[in-house]
Structures are given as C-alpha cells and as structure tokens.
Simulated assay, not measured.
Amino acid sequence: MSEALPDYGWGSARPHTANYLSEKVRDILRESGGKSVLDAGCGNGALAGYLASLGYQVTGLDASTSGIEIARMTFPDVRFEVGTFDSPPTGTFDAVCSTEVVEHLYSPHLLIQYCFEALKPGGLLIISTPYHGYLKNLAIALLGKWDSHLTALWHGGHIKFWSRATLSSLLEGAGFEVTGFYGAGRLPFFWKSMIIVAKRP
C-alpha cells in the first residue's frame, strides 16, 4: 500500500464479514475498556460506523478513495481519512482493529508496524483474516474448492494466506505480545476467519 487506490469496488452495503466479526470485535473492545479506536483498512466504514454507534471514538483509515467517500457519506459523524500504512499514524489510540485486510497486502509488515505505532502503550490490536488450518484446508482440497478460495480472478483479492502460527509470528516480530485467539463464522476448525488479539507492551 504505497499509494491511494482510486477504486476498490466498494459499495454502501455492509461487507459480508461484518455480520460475523463485528460482535466479537465489540466484545473484545468492551473487555479492554478502551474508548479510542482506529479501524485500519476500514473500507466503506461499516465496522467503524458500528463501533461509533456504540459510543467509541473511531477513526477509519483506508487507501481506497471510493471506500472513504462512501464511508463519509454513510457515517458523517465518524472521522475517515485516506491514507496508507507506509506513513506515520496521525494519532495514538487505545485499540486498533484491522479486519480482513492483511491477506490483501504485498507488504503486511507495514500494516503491523503502523498499528504498533498507532497504539498507546498497553493498547490492543484486534486483527482478523480468513482462517487456514489443517482440517479446513483438507476440506477445501477434497471438495475441489481451491480455485474459488484463492480468489485469483478477484481484482484486489487475497494474495497471502495466514495460519495462526504465521500471523502470530508476524505480530511478535513487530514487538506485539499475542494474548488471544478466536474463530469466527461456521463450525470450529472450519471457521471463515480467525481473530488474533495482541498487546503493545
């Protein structure tokens, strides 16, 4: 993400991920007690708008100009910024959320470093990405679904596929302490996504 994206195909409808991720993100934030939240890679602002409706002080950041335009129109009381992860954050926050973003990035370490710098000491990163584990991968192979799962024909689709171990390693390499893991969507070990929670020391 070294430059702003003019169009990423965003519409005003909530992304499908919001339905099964937003409540878990809400629950984690409630336990943390923080009030200021950065949504890093906010897309059309659906999650940021939801969290703002719960009373959080939310800022949404995305490289997609069309996504930010939609977010500003849909949630006019929430602060949204066009920006990339290779620039310094404009403030610090109690928590950073980044849902279904890291799998789209050529340089995911830039996102993680940005989140680290955007957090106050003791702040939480809540990051999600499609889940990949042995049983799910085996099921995808047996059902012949890898072509659709790998999103090769989707403009802006997934280019990296994370396991719990590899994403945790990325976070720990940036200085985070991994404190939690949750599956989201579908049955256990066939989850749509995984959520990893990490703390900035």
Rank of each mutant, 00 (worst) to 15 (best):
M1F: 05
S2P: 02
E3S: 09
A4Q: 00
L5V: 12
P6F: 08
G9K: 07
G9A: 10
W10V: 04
A13L: 02
R14P: 09
P15G: 01
P15Q: 00
H16A: 11
A18C: 08
Y20F: 15
S22V: 06
S22C: 08
R26E: 01
R30Y: 11
S32Q: 09
G34M: 01
G34Y: 03
S36H: 04
S36E: 07
V37W: 03
V37Y: 03
G41T: 07
G41E: 06
A46G: 03
L47D: 07
G49C: 05
Y50V: 02
A52L: 05
A52S: 15
A52W: 04
A52G: 00
G55R: 01
Y56W: 02
Y56A: 00
Q57H: 06
T59Q: 10
L61S: 02
D62M: 10
E69D: 15
M73I: 08
T74D: 10
F75D: 03
D77S: 11
R79S: 06
E81S: 04
T84N: 00
D86Q: 04
G91N: 11
G91I: 05
T99A: 14
E100L: 12
V102I: 15
V102D: 05
Y106F: 14
S107E: 14
P108R: 09
L110W: 14
L111S: 08
I112W: 15
I112N: 13
F116S: 07
F116V: 01
L119H: 09
L119P: 09
L119R: 10
L119F: 08
P121G: 05
G122I: 10
I127A: 05
S128W: 05
T129N: 10
T129W: 12
P130L: 06
Y134P: 14
K136Y: 00
K136S: 05
L138V: 13
L142M: 12
W146R: 13
W146E: 12
A152N: 11
A152G: 13
W154M: 10
H155V: 12
H158T: 04
W162D: 07
S168F: 06
S169Y: 04
L170T: 08
G173D: 10
G173F: 01
G175E: 03
F176R: 05
T179W: 09
G180H: 09
F181P: 15
F181D: 00
A184L: 10
G185E: 07
R186T: 10
R186Q: 14
R186G: 08
P188R: 01
F189N: 08
F190I: 08
W191Y: 10
W191Q: 00
W191A: 00
K192F: 04
I195C: 08
A198W: 04
A198K: 02
K199L: 07
R200N: 07
